[in-house]
Computed example of a mutant assay.
Amino acid sequence: MEPKNLTRVSEFHLLGFSEEPELQPLIFGSFLTMYLITVFGNLLIILAVSSDSQLHTPMYFFLSNLSFVDICFTSTTIPKMLWNIETQSKLITFEGCITQVYFFTLFAVLDILLLTVMAYDRFVAICHPLHYMVIMNPQLCGLLVLVSWVISVLHSLLESLMVLHLAFCTVLDIPHFFCELNQMIQLACSDTFLNNMVLYSVALLLAGGPLTGIFYSYSKIVSSIQGMSSAQGKYKAFSTCASHLAVVSLFYCTGLGVYLSSAVTHSSHSSARASVMYAVITPMLNPFIYSLRNKDLKRGLKTLFEKCLLSLVKGIFLSRLLVFCTSLCLFGLPQSLAISHWQ
Results as ranks from 00 to 15, higher is better:
1 M>P: 05
7 T>W: 06
10 S>E: 15
12 F>A: 03
18 S>V: 02
18 S>L: 00
27 I>S: 04
32 L>Q: 07
36 L>I: 15
41 G>Q: 09
46 I>T: 07
52 D>V: 12
64 S>Y: 02
69 V>D: 12
76 T>K: 00
79 P>F: 05
80 K>D: 14
82 L>R: 04
82 L>S: 08
85 I>F: 14
88 Q>D: 11
89 S>H: 02
91 L>D: 02
109 V>M: 02
110 L>M: 13
114 L>A: 09
114 L>Y: 09
118 M>V: 03
121 D>Y: 09
125 A>E: 10
127 C>E: 03
132 Y>N: 08
137 N>I: 05
138 P>C: 03
144 L>C: 06
144 L>H: 04
155 H>G: 00
159 E>I: 10
173 D>E: 01
174 I>G: 05
178 F>T: 06
182 N>F: 14
183 Q>E: 13
187 L>S: 12
190 S>L: 01
191 D>G: 07
192 T>N: 05
194 L>Y: 09
197 M>F: 14
199 L>W: 15
211 L>T: 09
229 S>G: 10
234 K>W: 10
239 S>P: 00
244 H>V: 06
245 L>W: 04
253 C>K: 05
254 T>K: 12
257 G>Q: 08
268 S>R: 09
275 S>M: 10
278 Y>G: 06
285 L>E: 08
288 F>K: 01
291 S>Y: 02
295 K>F: 01
299 R>C: 06
301 L>S: 02
304 L>T: 04
304 L>D: 07
306 E>C: 13
307 K>D: 06
307 K>A: 14
313 V>D: 12
316 I>W: 03
319 S>H: 11
319 S>M: 08
321 L>D: 13
322 L>G: 02
332 G>E: 00
338 A>I: 08
